[in-house]
Design a protein around this nucleic acid. Sequence first.
DNA 1: AGATTAAAAACAAGCGCTTGCTTGGTTTTA
DNA 2: TAAAACCAAGCAAGCGCTTGTTTTTAATCT
Lengths: 196, 196
Amino acid sequence: MPRIGRRERILEKSSQLFSKQGYHATTIRDISEACGMLSGSLYAHIQSKEDLLFEITDRGAELFLQSLRPIVDSRADPVDKLRRAMIAHIRVITDNLEAATVFFHEWKSLASERRRIIQQKRDRYERMWARLLSEGVESGAFRIVDEKFARLLILSAANGLYQWYRRSGDLTPEQVADRFTEILLSGLSDGKEEKR
Amino acid sequence: MPRIGRRERILEKSSQLFSKQGYHATTIRDISEACGMLSGSLYAHIQSKEDLLFEITDRGAELFLQSLRPIVDSRADPVDKLRRAMIAHIRVITDNLEAATVFFHEWKSLASERRRIIQQKRDRYERMWARLLSEGVESGAFRIVDEKFARLLILSAANGLYQWYRRSGDLTPEQVADRFTEILLSGLSDGKEEKR
DNA sequence: AGATTAAAAACAAGCGCTTGCTTGGTTTTA
DNA sequence: TAAAACCAAGCAAGCGCTTGTTTTTAATCT
């Protein structure tokens, strides 16, 4: 008769602490205190501290993958796909700010085996974006010289969101995604110059 | 009669280790071993482990500030300024990849006082970029709806570089900066649509 | 409803180890 | 020959985690 939510609570508190102080700077005693128990009591619910990190990052990876999948598989036009993919990506971050922070910032603290699992999911996610951009280039919707470079730039900009979303005032995820795609699609220049 | 380079060597090895494993995951014994000495011997050259982190991040902050200063103060046109600022920013990262990684990834591990110092320098740097963009908007060179948002996007994308520059093959910093500004200024879309 | 009972949850104590750092003495360097 | 660099040894504190025991919980049986 497991009391419900116990483990979830631990994961949530861990996300908060890991995202704020980092994985290595957070102790088992920090986590247990945040959960209102002693350090030993934690181990009725988890096997190791690293389990917590893995579960948080793995859930994060799955959120990204599952939110992008239906968009990539759909048959919308590339520009619309990009817009929707951006919204999805940003939603995952803003709706799970602490878990996303841990996912981006602390996944390298995982040991070899589990780190590889996360690495693979990151690669899969990046490949989905690559496909999305390729379609746009092939269809003539995007004018991209260096696809790999463009992809890395886009994802860097989007991933950086977890570091400043709090500061962006009361923008909704949709508003953020709109401004995002607007800049990425149209650029910053005034448009007087001809496109090359 | 201090043997030259001893302290610099320690800083360099620390940068390598901090950037690879993170500050908290790196021990004094790791550093001393990399320097070919025992852990106690380190303390003839440093006062504390955190000194190392601070000196690395503070030097990084100064590199960014000093490389951007003359560009912001110059009287070039905004588009050219942006281009040159981007090159400078990217040069700092690519020429000091390990220190830059520590600067971006580990500065929050500093304790309150020193963390504030770095925070202030980061703010100053961001304000310089803000001014650069504002000038461009005032002069009509940039068409930016939300300046703060654009600034955060640009810096996020540029700062992300430390995570993937190794993967970008043999692009020179200038080539990276060119592709960067090209996308940011002109956008990804094919240009058939009118600019709003 | 109240008593029973076994699983689940939490505690109290502490183990083995690693951490950042210190100290006192020895070697190296110029 | 004296300052600088390094070693050898180890301290106090904190780490992740384990163990044996007690308390709490909620389903079961009168």
